[in-house]
């Protein structure tokens, strides 16, 4: 079976900052994923807020957003880029606790 022809562009979600329990291993795997998809001819769109990563180097994706990995921001990126698919499994685990939410919160964690 060749690669899927019904999708052309893929959005990859990165892991954000290095914290305890989520170190740079997600940069390593994310960078591999970007390269693997790019060489198959897909348009790769990447979001990651961590500038110290190799995956956010401009050559790694076709469009690189160094922006917060939060759904409200991702929505804006989806609206702009219109990807066909999202690959979320390179994002890892953040150690932050679930934030308590209130109506007046300016944005959600």
């Amino acid at each position: 079976m060749p690669r899927r022809a019904d999708i052309n562009s893929i959005l990859i979600l990165g892991a954000g900052p290095i914290i305890i329990g989520q170190a740079c291993e997600f940069d390593y795997s994310g960078a591999q994923a970007c390269q693997a998809l790019k060489e198959e001819g897909y348009r790769v769109i990447l979001v990651n807020s961590n500038p110290a990563t190799i995956m956010t180097d401009p050559s790694m994706a076709d469009a690189t957003y160094i922006e917060p990995v939060k759904w409200r921001i991702i929505e804006k990126i989806i609206e702009k880029e219109r990807p066909d698919a999202i690959l979320p499994t390179k994002g890892g685990q953040t150690g932050t606790q679930l934030r308590t939410r209130s109506k007046s919160a300016w944005y959600f964690g």
């Binding site: 999708i7 893929i10 959005l11 979600l13 990165g14 892991a15 954000g16 989520q22 990995v69 939060k70 759904w71 991702i74 929505e75 989806i78 609206e79 219109r82 990807p83 066909d84 698919a85 999202i86 690959l87 979320p88 499994t89 390179k90 994002g91 890892g92 685990q93 953040t94 150690g95 932050t96 606790q97 679930l98």
Partner: peptide
């Protein structure tokens, strides 16, 4: 504990954004 990448994807799904823009989770 939240899983940033996965959790963000679930958030997008929950808020109907994946459907709205017809994005598939792979």
């Amino acid at each position: 504990m939240v899983k940033q990448g996965l959790n963000c994807a679930l958030d997008l799904n929950r808020h109907g954004i994946l459907d709205k823009y017809n994005v598939e989770l792979i």
